[in-house]
Simulated scan of single mutants.
Amino acid sequence: MIVACPNCNGLNRLPADRPAAAAKCGKCKQLLFSGAPLDLTSANFAAHAQKAELPLVVDFWASWCGPCQSFAPVFSQAARELEPHFRFGKINTEQQQQLAAQFNIRSIPTLMLFKQGKVVAQQAGALPKQAFYQWVSSYK
């Protein structure tokens, strides 16, 4: 499986017979999985959403959004608990307006799940923890 490094965005091949949680980037030697959501931008989005084979769960959010703020701890906890089966990333719609427009974001938070560059699931609004985990896990 091809995984993008959260630090340098370099692509790495993960062997199926080794534990992924301890894997390091071949380029920058940092851990490939930190257990924290990535800050996705126009510069690093393609590496994680299109080039990597690991499913990517994206939270489109804004700092002024109350539901976004209340959902943030659930999203962070999911990154800690569900990596390395999924990669989790956040896109600040105020700072990354081009990405928000590209995916036609009309309300926030909006959750999207990408597999190899394609949106396979979309959910508008914050979800309770159990419902969010169930939604994510149904796309393994």
Rank of each mutant, 00 (worst) to 15 (best):
L56F: 15
Q98Y: 09
Q50E: 15
Q134V: 10
S138G: 04
L32N: 10
Q77I: 13
F60H: 13
Q77E: 14
L14T: 00
M1T: 05
S107L: 15
A124C: 10
S137V: 11
K115T: 08
F60V: 10
Q102N: 14
K29F: 09
K51N: 12
L14C: 05
P73Q: 00
Q102M: 09
V57L: 11
G26P: 07
A46L: 04
F71T: 02
T93Y: 10
L111G: 02
V3C: 06
I2Y: 02
S63I: 03
Q134K: 04
L38V: 09
N92P: 08
Q69N: 12
N104C: 12
A79K: 02
A126P: 12
K90A: 13
A36T: 13
K140G: 09
H85T: 13
A49F: 10
P55V: 00
A62K: 02
A101R: 15
A79Y: 07
S70V: 05
P55S: 08
A52N: 02
S42I: 11
G26F: 13
D39N: 10
A43F: 02
D17M: 14
V119K: 05
N7Y: 08
Q50W: 11
Q130P: 11
A79H: 04
Q116H: 11
D39F: 06
A62L: 15
K118M: 09
N104I: 14
P19C: 09
T93W: 11
H48K: 07
Q50T: 08
A16N: 03
F88V: 11
G89D: 14
N44M: 02
Q97T: 10
F45N: 01
G26Y: 14
P37I: 15
G35P: 13
L40R: 04
A46M: 04
K129M: 06
H48R: 05
L113W: 07
G35S: 08
A16E: 04
A21P: 06
Q116S: 12
Q122G: 07
K140V: 03
E53Q: 14
N104Q: 15
L82H: 00
S137F: 09
E94P: 06
L56D: 01
S138V: 13
L31C: 10
L40H: 04
P6A: 08
Q69D: 10
A101W: 11
Q95P: 07
V136A: 12
C65L: 02
Q134N: 06
M1R: 03
G10T: 01
L11D: 13
I2D: 06
R87I: 14
A20S: 05
P73I: 12
K129F: 05
V58G: 01
V58L: 03
A20M: 01
L99M: 03
T93F: 07
D39C: 08
Q95H: 06
N12H: 04
L38M: 15
H85K: 13
I2G: 03
V136Q: 13
T41G: 14
D39L: 05
V57Y: 00
K129H: 08
A22G: 12
A72T: 02
A43V: 00
I108F: 12
A78N: 03
Q122I: 10
L54M: 11
L14N: 02
K115D: 05
A121G: 09
V119F: 05
T41F: 10
H85W: 10
Q95L: 15
L56N: 01
R80Q: 09
F88M: 07
Q130K: 14
Q30W: 03
A4R: 02
